[in-house]
Computed example of a mutant assay.
Amino acid sequence: MAIRTIVWGENIHEQTNDVVRSIYPDGMHAVIAKALNEHPDIEATTATLQEEEHGLPQGRLDQADVLVWWGHKDHGAVSDALVERIAARVWEGMGLVVLHSGHFSKIFKRLMGTPCALKWREAGERERVWVVNPRHPIAAGLPEHFVLENEEMYGEAFSVPEPLETVFISWFAGGEVFRSGMTWRRGAGNIFYFRPGHETYPTYHDATVQAVLRNGVTWAYNPQARYDAIHDAPNVPVESALEPISERGPRLHQAGEAGYR
């Protein structure tokens, strides 16, 4: 069964900036989806900010195995209701791949619980991406490092939680370094952040970057059944306890009551 993947793109710079339009005439999301569809096990479609419900109604999210997210200019335009729907799906097991400036997206900050801030400079610098975890599935088939001749610099410190794993570290011509590929798990969902992808450079046309994206999606995919019970908070009555117990004090809630949220 194919890994049902949605590539979400903000789709603003492609419409308003001539340089970005010349590199990605059909949008960055289209280039990313095309690269993902080269993998025999991935079935990638697209969604954009401008669509109704930003292209991600509940029914579509319910069917998604992995969501790939690129945003930059208007993170605030993404509805809070959608952010909560996506977070719920990640907790239930949907994978999430967050790209480049998506570090400031509402959904990434919601799941990280931190500012997700960093240093940056837009100067078209050389970026050397080092594979520091060569046995990780996201690094499968990659050389020990690869170079992007022109990229925006992101520099440490990156205010995210300590990752589950660090896969890539980047060095930039100006001297800064950055943890460019990190993973986390939230509930049953796998999250991968991958740094390269500034819109004024052809990063998503790069064959190695495309390989990372395919590896990232297949890693983020959770083949287990959807974990709906993660939202449950059952009130277990005394008589249902695994071992015999007696009620020993006053209580606020009645047996079996749902409680407050």
Score class of each variant (00 low, 15 high):
54 H>D: 10
55 G>P: 04
55 G>L: 04
56 L>I: 05
59 G>P: 04
60 R>C: 00
61 L>Q: 02
61 L>V: 05
61 L>F: 05
62 D>L: 11
62 D>E: 14
62 D>G: 13
63 Q>M: 14
65 D>K: 03
65 D>H: 12
69 W>C: 01
71 G>Q: 08
72 H>A: 05
73 K>G: 06
73 K>P: 06
74 D>T: 03
74 D>C: 08
75 H>Y: 14
76 G>D: 04
78 V>T: 12
81 A>E: 15
82 L>F: 06
83 V>K: 01
83 V>Y: 05
84 E>M: 09
85 R>T: 02
86 I>P: 13
87 A>E: 12
87 A>P: 13
90 V>P: 13
90 V>F: 10
94 M>F: 10
94 M>N: 05
94 M>Y: 07
95 G>L: 02
96 L>S: 08
100 H>N: 15
101 S>L: 13
104 F>H: 14
104 F>Q: 11
104 F>G: 13
105 S>D: 11
107 I>Q: 04
107 I>M: 11
108 F>C: 05
109 K>L: 01
109 K>H: 02
110 R>G: 05
116 C>G: 02
118 L>P: 02
119 K>F: 10
124 G>E: 04
125 E>S: 11
125 E>G: 08
128 R>Y: 00
128 R>L: 11
129 V>T: 13
131 V>W: 08
132 V>W: 09
133 N>F: 04
134 P>Y: 03
137 P>N: 07
137 P>D: 03
140 A>S: 14
140 A>G: 11
141 G>Q: 09
141 G>A: 06
141 G>D: 07
142 L>T: 05
148 L>F: 07
149 E>H: 10
